[in-house]
Write a protein that binds this DNA or RNA. Structure first.
Lengths: 352, 352
DNA sequence: TTGAAAGCGCTAACAA
DNA sequence: TTGTTAGCGCTTTCAA
């Protein structure tokens, strides 16, 4: 029906000029001087014909495809994915680029296969992302490619990376608890995630805890306990129950993510304890859960959207300036930390 | 460093044959008979040089790129995205294709721009997806393209679509309630989602309710009430509170999604009612929430992964047979519906 | 100011 | 059985 696409040759013919001339005006190059009249004819012809350049052909010629790849280990499960992709898409779209997605499932063979597939398609660059912040080894196939690391980092090479600012997130969470007036009975649930699977802890946990402990030390406040456990609802539930069973009634709980907080809510509720009147709860991630819980959960947000967007910006705008970009994690104040109207004491965190 | 990619010319030269011969053996074409010896030389050369075909060049020549596009209205927010993309990725990868993602945000202009961008890159086909099941108008730019609809449908053209089997989901949910022994005090929360924003209801609501009502009628059981409201936690909470305030203590709640169920749990808990002992709860979607709630929530799953995978399979394998593919929604039995061990009475739904 | 022509890496019709 | 050749649609050098 609509038949074959109109090519530049069609446009040139209709405008009565050579393909060269058409190419120059359509590319908007002003260096080779073309008569205003010819230019106008070409533009009109292109418009009338509905001409659109074939980017495959252009890519073959120039080896730029205006296509970038987002390869990540696991994309599914968590809501991480959605907003990261959203941010990446927005940044790519704003620069007239398009985004290829791939998921390696943590398998190096799959990874190699996928990366080579993208290379075969001449992508202009890669965002290499992980679901959970951690150190990575860059796959060999990516050695000579433009790459930005998202939510991970590497020591092997000087490749730019984009990470959430977890230390300050920890500082802010602690500051919220202090600003709510607590100086004792403060417990941390989740800790560094030092469990069987991750005996050294996970990066987010280590960083958040560092921030928390810094602020506590500065305020001369002692944590009453740090429970190391997995970060699922059942873990939060179990550990808080255990706390309560030991007659240790906490005044404030810093939970290392919203799922842990959910478990904590459940355990507190079972004992007839009320948030925030009896126990103050502060959390991390600011997932949907934080708004769904009753009362609303105060949580330091993982800035998924900005992470995705920034990674693509760094990739495409290519400012090599800072090698690691730390994206601030905004604290979302809701009702679970008591002093809902009081912002965290700015004096506690002078660094911002 | 590694310099330019090795091309087929390099391979041919090293194997001492023409580019044609190299092309034929590398493409695995056996119709033009090539000596086993030449073939072997070409293969060796390709292997030794680490040859990989440039898919951009091939695409220009053959106009097949082994690249498909997933364009959807909103990708972020819900966990829908993650699993759908995951399924699509798996199916595409298994067929050695790669996936381009785009998000229109419901804006037709954005949509046109994005679709044309993909067309300019010569994608082989489109999966056109929506976050919530509904009817759509296919954008004009997609008229001449290979398209599969995902989670939506259109009356205008005979384009294949992939949809969750919501009617049977409704049937199964109702069957679970009946199998748990309830014949009265059954309330539905959420209904057809007939609210200000969507006065006619939403597709999922209409279909689920049809299934529910069919089964109830067949069993000669009367629903005690259907509450029409939005499907957020606060709505479930408010409506169940209202129910309880009216001294209508329900025996069973069918909530139209897991978020509504969360709100219901909260309201029941506030009144000291226990799930499932006092009230049986059955839900839809089977999101993470369903596993996180205590007790675990019995929920009819939206088969996100299979939806995504099937859409790509239909697109790539191109069986035109059924125009609409209904993907079954498995019921995930947990603790909230009481008779945890009893599967829904198969006699109730003979159609499977 | 414009056009001819080469070539990006690949496929495929045709000739040898 | 293999090689020559002509493109796919575009950019860009060079000559006119």
């Amino acid at each position: 029906m609509s038949g074959r696409r109109v090519t530049m040759t069609d446009v040139a013919r209709r405008a009565g000029v050579s393909r060269t001339t058409a190419s120059f005006v359509l590319a908007g190059r002003r260096d080779m001087r073309i008569s205003g009249e010819a230019e106008e004819r070409v533009r009109r012809a292109a418009r009338e014909l509905g001409y659109r350049p074939n980017l495959t052909a252009r890519g073959l010629r120039t080896s730029v495809t205006r296509t970038i790849a987002l390869v990540s280990d696991i994309i599914a499960t968590t809501q991480f994915a959605g907003e990261v992709i959203h941010g990446a898409l927005d940044a790519a779209g704003a620069r007239d680029h398009v985004l290829l997605i791939a998921e390696t499932e943590g398998d190096p063979n799959v990874e190699t296969r996928l990366v080579e597939g993208m290379l075969d398609r001449q992508v202009d660059g890669f965002v290499y992302a992980t679901m959970y912040s951690r150190e990575v080894r860059l796959p060999a196939a990516l050695r000579d490619a433009r790459v930005v690391l998202l939510n991970c980092y590497t020591e092997e090479a000087r490749v730019p990376c984009v990470l959430p600012d977890e230390v300050n997130a920890g500082r802010d969470a602690a500051a919220v608890v202090l600003a709510a007036g607590h100086r004792e009975g403060i417990h941390v649930i989740g800790g560094r995630h030092m469990t069987n699977g991750t005996p050294e802890g996970v990066w987010a946990g280590l960083e958040r805890m560092r921030g928390i402990e810094e602020v506590m030390a500065e305020a001369d406040v002692r944590l009453d306990g740090v429970v190391e456990c997995d970060w699922q609802p059942e873990d939060g539930h179990r550990e808080v129950r255990r706390l309560l069973a030991a007659k240790t009634v906490p005044r404030a709980l810093i939970c290392l993510n919203d799922r842990v907080s959910l478990g904590a809510y459940q355990a507190l509720q079972e004992e007839g304890l009320r948030v925030p009147d009896d126990v103050c709860v502060v959390s991390f991630d600011d997932s949907d859960l934080a708004t769904w819980l009753r009362p609303g959960l105060t949580s330091v947000a993982l800035p998924h959207y900005r992470l995705g967007r920034t990674a693509v910006e760094v990739l495409l705008d290519g400012k090599p300036d800072p090698v690691v970009h730390r994206i601030p994690m905004p604290v979302m104040l809701r009702a679970s930390h008591t002093a809902a109207t009081a912002p965290p004491d700015p004096a506690v965190r002078p660094g911002t």
